[in-house]
Amino acid sequence: MTSLDRIEALVAEYLAALDAALTDVPAARRRQILEDVRQHLEAARASLPPDDEAGIRAVLDRLGDPAAIAAEAGVGFSRRPRWVDAAVPWLLLLGGFVGGGGWLVGAALLWTSRVWRLRDKIWGTLVWPGGLFGVGVAFGTVVGGVQTCSGSTVAGHPLVMHCTSRPGWSEPVGIAVLVGIFCAQLVTVGHLERVRRGAAR
């Protein structure tokens, strides 16, 4: 390993540690801090001989512990849950049975909450739209299949209809996929609930 490789590794390791420490910081702020620190390191490297490993170590030392930067980044930002946040996982899971509106309310509350991060929100919305109700509808389509009818009328003759029924997918595959989605739905809601309880502590 050359000293250049070691410098690359040191810098990458520091940035990865900072990225991990900033997990709970809102996305825009996190991105800006990471960009600035990356630039800080680039500027510092440009001012040093390219293989000055001790110099880079000193630069990282002056930057300080990633945890200290993260602590500073967390000031002025509260992840304390609102009381309605407790209802969000349940609305996402079962709200679809309340005329579909319950799930939409859950999704709206999810996106306006400070408790969940962006990836939780995307995950919570996409797996699975409509919650268990949505899974049920998809299940009905697969098992019931899709019926298509075509008819023709010829003047003076009775109407003739031909109906064919075909399942959306091949049934065993479709059912396996839906069971998978059902389980993913439960895991997602469990995850959202765990994050909420963590933030409430």
């Binding site: 702020r29 801090i33 620190v37 800080h40 002056r62 980044a73």
Partner: peptide, 28 residues
């Protein structure tokens, strides 16, 4: 000014412990 300059001035003055803590302040 860019971040690196601000960080070294504040650090040398003893106003911030680690230069990195400048960046959350700038973000805010």
């Amino acid at each position: 000014r860019y971040g690196w300059e601000l960080a070294s001035v504040l650090h040398d003055a003893g106003l911030i412990a680690g230069e990195g803590t400048l960046y959350p302040l700038l973000a805010r």
